[in-house]
Computed example of a mutant assay.
Amino acid sequence: ATYENCTHCIYKYIENNTRITAMLHEVIVKPSSLVITITPIPEVKAGEVFIVTGTINYNIKTISIENVTATITVNVKPYSVDVNPDGTYSKEITAPNKGGTYPVKITVVDYAYNLSAEETAQLIVKGKPAPPPDYTPLIVGTVIAVVIIIIIGVIFFKKREKIKPYLLILKAKIKKEEFIECGECGKKIPGTFKKCPYCGAEFEEELVKCSECSAFIPASADKCPKCGAMFEE
């Protein structure tokens, strides 16, 4: 056989006066999954530094690991991990400060092949376990608040008759009603009141304004109880 030339993977040769042309096609083999391992982690003390090691590879052994992002999560706290070209990894991490069993999870993402996987191991930390939540302050605070509300309610109930006039005065102020001056104590009260909430004076008849001191007094009065002015008519 006589080979003529080779250009762009096209091979041409002649055999028995027959020209044969062959083209080679490139075949790309892609992995279908990531294989992750975590070396068993020995028991550690609370707050002690330990090392998480393992391997990350593809299911096809001939393809080298590259362009992967690995993250180790211990007790919800993430740590970034550098992966060596041979697929091994190692990361120093400080154990939680409280005893117990914690999950150690490594998550790997390969953006080149659009693959992701994760693996989980257990970390046993020696030390006192975390105490259960203490709800005592919450319970005590709630009880105190309820007692205070009850006391305020009882006081308000007992004083409701004394408080009612003041609430009516406040209501009259909000409605912008006309206020008059009590002829006995001189306090300002709504003109619709038949009794002064401050001094208890009752108004059984029409009130008029004193020409001397402008206090509101009964229309039949012949003397102003506030300034002493006498009325002949």
Score class of each variant (00 low, 15 high):
residue 50 F to V: 10
residue 71 T to S: 09
residue 61 K to A: 15
residue 96 P to C: 12
residue 37 T to E: 11
residue 69 T to P: 12
residue 95 A to L: 09
residue 76 V to P: 00
residue 119 E to H: 08
residue 99 G to F: 06
residue 37 T to G: 10
residue 97 N to F: 06
residue 111 Y to Q: 14
residue 60 I to P: 02
residue 41 I to W: 00
residue 66 E to H: 14
residue 113 Y to H: 15
residue 31 P to T: 09
residue 61 K to D: 10
residue 97 N to M: 03
residue 87 G to V: 04
residue 121 A to M: 02
residue 119 E to V: 10
residue 53 T to P: 05
residue 120 T to N: 13
residue 111 Y to E: 12
residue 57 N to C: 08
residue 101 T to Q: 14
residue 126 K to Y: 06
residue 74 V to A: 01
residue 78 P to I: 00
residue 78 P to T: 01
residue 69 T to F: 14
residue 73 T to E: 03
residue 113 Y to C: 07
residue 69 T to V: 12
residue 81 V to T: 04
residue 116 S to E: 11
residue 90 S to K: 09
residue 66 E to A: 09
residue 110 D to W: 13
residue 92 E to V: 06
residue 125 V to H: 00
residue 40 P to C: 09
residue 52 V to H: 01
residue 114 N to W: 08
residue 63 I to A: 07
residue 78 P to V: 01
residue 104 V to P: 02
residue 117 A to M: 02
residue 38 I to F: 10
residue 99 G to M: 03
residue 77 K to M: 10
residue 115 L to Y: 06
residue 84 N to R: 12
residue 69 T to Y: 13
residue 128 K to E: 06
residue 101 T to Y: 06
residue 120 T to Q: 14
residue 44 V to M: 04
residue 122 Q to R: 10
residue 101 T to D: 07
residue 49 V to C: 08
residue 118 E to R: 03
residue 48 E to T: 06
residue 103 P to F: 11
